[in-house]
Simulated scan of single mutants.
Amino acid sequence: MKTLLLKKEEVRSLISMKEVISTVEEAYKAFNSNQVVQPDYIGIHLPPPRGEIDFKLSYYMANEVISMKASSGGFNDNPAVHGVPSGMGTILLFDGKSCALICVMDGSLITGLRTGAAGAVSVKLLARKNSRKVTSIGTGNQARMQIRAISEVMNIEEIHAWDNSPDTLARFKADIEGEFGIPVSMASSKKNGG
């Protein structure tokens, strides 16, 4: 059996946010129906200035696939010192029948898409149907992914955003307004939204 190797660009070309939202919703239903075996994750905190690495494992009975994700974060010196991101992820897929390794793929994009999709599934199922406003506390990459995902399930007309970094908040406002044409109100406090 051959092992497929997928780089980040290849992963990006194979999936869309809409597909990920549908898959995350299916995964929640499968987990709730006891079709998923998912032990607690294991994490290792490394001595400063380094961060941590987590290992997450699951088995989905319906498609006989075992997945393992290794994801790191908090390695803030990485870009300058090592020329790699401060957080990275890798996903391994195994055939559940033979335990043969069937795929190794970059997990950074999938992690972002999955987290955004989880927010979208929550909005789809729990938000009032006439909701049109979104509030984001924090305006980094995950906030952007959340807006991309939520826009697939809700007609967003206005975004309120706060971040402890005024520069990050200003970039978020410019980027989101440019990408979606949705006005972003920058909050001066996370308490009152204004």
Rank of each mutant, 00 (worst) to 15 (best):
V11H: 01
I137R: 11
S98V: 06
M105N: 02
G119H: 03
K29Y: 13
G74E: 07
V184Q: 04
E177A: 09
E19G: 12
Y59L: 08
L14Y: 09
R114V: 06
A170D: 11
I176V: 15
R132H: 14
G178P: 12
K7G: 03
E9S: 07
G74M: 07
V37L: 10
V121Y: 05
T111K: 00
I150M: 09
G140F: 10
S188V: 11
D77C: 00
L126N: 15
L5Y: 13
T135S: 14
I150W: 06
S13R: 09
K7A: 10
C99I: 09
K8D: 10
T115C: 09
S33Y: 07
G193P: 02
A120L: 07
K124D: 13
L46T: 08
T23E: 13
Y60K: 07
S33G: 05
M186A: 14
V153I: 12
S86W: 00
S108F: 02
A127E: 12
G116V: 06
M154K: 15
K190N: 08
I182N: 03
N63E: 11
A143E: 06
S67C: 08
N192G: 12
P85D: 01
G112C: 06
L109R: 04
D163G: 11
H45C: 01
P48K: 14
H82R: 08
D175P: 07
E158Y: 14
I44N: 03
I53G: 01
D163L: 02
L14N: 11
V104K: 04
P79W: 12
V134P: 01
F94S: 04
G74C: 07
G87P: 04
D167H: 09
V153P: 03
L169K: 01
I15G: 00
M154T: 08
R50G: 01
V24N: 02
D163A: 13
G107S: 02
A30E: 10
D40L: 14
F75P: 00
K2S: 12
K173W: 08
K2F: 12
T111D: 00
S22I: 00
A118T: 10
S188H: 13
S151I: 07
M145N: 14
R12D: 12
V123S: 05
T139C: 15
F180T: 06
D175V: 13
I15H: 04
N141F: 13
T23G: 05
R171H: 14
K129M: 12
P85F: 03
T115Q: 11
Q38K: 14
P39T: 11
I66A: 03
G89W: 01
